[in-house]
Structure formats: structure tokens, C-alpha cells
Amino acid sequence: MRLLTHNMLSCNIKGVSNGFPLRLEAEKWVEKEVELNADFLRGIFPKIEWKALAGAARALGYNELPDEADASMLDADDFLRRFHHALLELHVEEGALVCPETGRRFPINKGIPNMLLHEDEV
């Protein structure tokens, strides 16, 4: 799972009103290089919750994202490179996503979060 996906996921257990962001507990992660596409980054930027992205990146030991970001920064290559790296090149392999409201843990195995809800959570 990349941080792009983490940034979109929200816990949908019945009754939870704010399931975002899921806290990232990472035990193992890997880096995979992919080509940078500035148009994609500019298009997705307005949809990204920046604080959640920066926080998740820190959980993976990547501290190069600023605490806050605005669209004007997309003109700087250096910023684009860091944004790209955090969003698309870091893959969480083992760990868990934790609901901020209920503390429910969704385990991540082989890079795949198990988001299946129990019957009483639907």
C-alpha cells in the first residue's frame, strides 16, 4: 500500500463519524522507484490531506515533507520530487491501520490492508 491510498482511506465502521486519517503503524516498508509525472501530482494535490500525508511519511522515517503545503509550491521541482516520493514510492508491507475513533486495527499483510468489517461493525 502506498501513501496515496492511505490518504484516501477512511474507516467506515458503523457509527464512526471521523475515520480519517487511519493511524499508520508500519513494521516493514520498501521503496520502489517510479517515474515522476508532474501533471499527475498537480492534479491530485488539491485532493490530498497534507497533514495526513506528512504524518504517514514520518511514520516511515521520511521527514522531508513540510508541515504545510499550498499549490504555489508545485512549481518547485524539489517540492514535487519529495511529494512524489512520499505519495508513490513508499510501500507499506507489514503493519496496521488504526481507526482514530475506535482504535480498531486493520492489519496489513504482504502490502494488503485487511479492511473487512466484522458483522457488528456494518
Binding site: T5, L9, S10, F20, I112, L116, L117
Partner: peptide
């Protein structure tokens, strides 16, 4: 990215993304 999930339980994503 792959998710082990049941679409019948809803997709669990932020709005409009």
C-alpha cells in the same frame, strides 16, 4: 494498491477524491 475488502460493506474512502 490492493485492499482485502467487501464492496457490500461500503468502500471506506474520503468524499470526492
Amino acid at each position: 494498491d490492493l485492499l482485502l475488502a467487501d464492496m457490500g460493506q461500503g468502500l471506506g474512502l474520503r468524499p470526492g477524491v
